[in-house]
Design a protein around this nucleic acid. Structure first.
Lengths: 341, 341
DNA sequence: CTGAAAGCGCTTACAG
DNA sequence: CTGAAAGCGCTTACAG
């Protein structure tokens, strides 16, 4: 590995002028600069980022922390890879490295502070945490590097967020079902205190009320945004409730998949007996037994803006708002149908 | 950020003994060691890995490079996240950090050497490259840090590999179709020079021949292991060939999904008209219109062993073989049926 | 067992 | 415009 010392030697200058020539910081005569550049090229010189990091007090690394359920065989969501892809590409293009950590909800409490203190990273981007806002705010309060959460709203000031409009997603989805003539609409994915769930639920509720329908707790089903909870949640609800809903709004596609499975097990046909829609628009929904109507979330765009925001903060040229909210879109497929009443 | 200097000061010793006490390298009196440990604890001392890296000449980072097609909207495979999850967890448990790079096939040529030379990383794990073995061997030949490829065989000596038995996968899948009475079996996913494709194809061919069936080029369909190629490949084949196959072995599930879609567009029923099976066992195949029969690949296990292997190499206690091959299993669902002849 | 010194590869004031 | 010196936070021989 060639060092700046060797470059300086070949160019016949001091290491400090070699450094200045390469980084263009201080005034360097044109010719000497040329000599140094030439020597560096000849020797295939690549500055050692570790050494640079030591003096510059930064690492060029940004940690992406993906958090998921502790039963790891449930820990899968096609959304994650899409977000990782856009974050790492944006980061790399800007000359940063992405550190990846994949942890469980339980480990957040020890791992997040550990990673922040490790000095391996200049900032962190949080993906997928299902911790409620109050606890998350507390956990992130002690972190002294920039923190950004993605696909959920900021739990507290000082924590940046890039997300889509969850309230609107809940509202728009529910309104669509109402327009199809449904009056008994269930909500799948209540998770009190977690903003993404609270906001989608609030949108659902307001859509109902705006259209003169009654919000009822018995039609609100808990779910943790993983598939299994959709399956168990829907089966439980179907057995409990006297008047079955005619439609279900699921707060994400994964739970909708679970619900599809649960309804199949209960002998309920979709959409003939019950309509269902999801949210997110994960890949290949059109190939399902019942192609799923959903509301898309712009994951690639979210990841891109999250990275740009974090880089802006680190480089002191942050021109994006503290909270970025992107729009989402309805994608109608075959799991929802007009009431034939 | 507290440094070892402050720890040493509080403990009343020199920084070198503080260092020795903490790292336990040289002999240190029990009491002084205690004093140092205590001081470090009190000050919440975390060694700066950047500084350590500079003297130890390692970074503690391992790069995971995921490579995919250049048309990025096609770049999605649920397999990737599963592999990332197992690699990063294993790496982190052993005290290493995962660097993530997500690139395109085209960029491999510039990015892989760049990452290797960047000094940001001690080793690299390659995921998803569809470059043919000869070119890959050449590309990796110049890399002077340990390189391991995952889910494909090693293209050359010096490159480590952790994979499943692709030949057996092709053989076992084809044999299953033969046992169902099929005699005209197509292979979807030929990609000459790429070991995973070549090996699955070789297994397919040998299964045919072992059972007295003729291998025919016209039934071998090209595919790049992404979904789109399954769709176009199958449509093309169905229009070209005179005698339609009664079954298809797809070299991965993603192409099988594309094929499912293509056959639907061509008005062909699965499995009534044509049986199809995939490989990999990605999530939620049981929820498809036609639940897909497949051969599972142990992705989590592959990622875990890949990380252990790389760590073993870096730490000089490598006790795993240079090429690790794991078994895969048949998962029968509804996309394959017995010939009713 | 302990500490002073040198050095990892770089950058940043500062003198000339 | 150029170079000698100091320093980033650590570890590693080496002298005592």
């Amino acid at each position: 590995m060639t060092t700046i010392k060797e470059v300086a030697k070949l160019a016949g200058v001091a290491v400090s002028t070699a450094s200045n020539a390469i980084n263009g910081n201080y005034g360097v005569k044109k010719e000497t600069k040329q000599k140094v550049i030439e020597a560096a090229r000849k020797l295939n010189y690549v500055p050692n980022p570790i050494a640079q990091g030591l003096v510059n007090r930064n690492t060029g690394n940004i940690s992406i922390i993906v958090s998921g359920p502790s039963s790891f065989n449930l820990f899968n969501n096609p959304v994650f890879f899409e977000v990782l892809r856009s974050i790492t590409q944006t980061l790399n293009t800007a000359g940063y490295q992405a550190h990846l950590n994949i942890i469980t909800t339980e480990d957040e409490e020890t791992e997040i502070p550990r990673i922040a203190r490790s000095r391996y990273t200049d900032a962190m981007i949080l993906v997928g945490s299902r911790r409620n806002d109050i606890d998350l705010a507390q956990l992130l309060g002690d972190i002294d590097i920039p923190v950004l959460v993605v696909i959920r709203s900021s739990p507290s000031s000082g924590v940046y967020a890039v997300s889509s409009d969850h309230w609107n997603c809940g509202y728009k989805g529910t309104e669509y079902l109402i327009q199809l003539g449904h009056k008994e609409i269930a909500f799948l994915g209540a998770l009190p205190g977690v903003s993404i769930a609270d906001e989608r639920l609030a949108g659902y509720r307001e859509a109902l009320e705006d259209h003169g329908l009654t919000y009822r707790d018995s039609l609100v089903i808990e779910g943790d945004f993983y598939q299994e909870s959709g399956l168990t949640g829907i089966r439980h609800m179907l057995r409990q409730v006297l008047r079955k809903p005619t439609a279900i709004f699921a707060a994400n596609d994964l739970m909708a998949l679970g619900a599809l499975e649960g309804m199949e097990q209960e002998g309920i046909r979709v959409p003939e007996d019950i309509s269902i829609m999801g949210s997110d628009n994960i890949p290949n929904l059109h190939l399902l037994k019942v192609p799923l109507t959903t509301i898309s979330t712009p994951f690639y765009e979210i990841g891109r803006l999250a990275s740009e925001k974090i880089i802006g903060i680190l480089e002191g040229k942050d021109d994006l708002p503290e909270k970025i909210v992107l729009p989402s879109e309805l994608r109608v497929r075959e799991s929802t149908k007009r009431m034939s009443s």
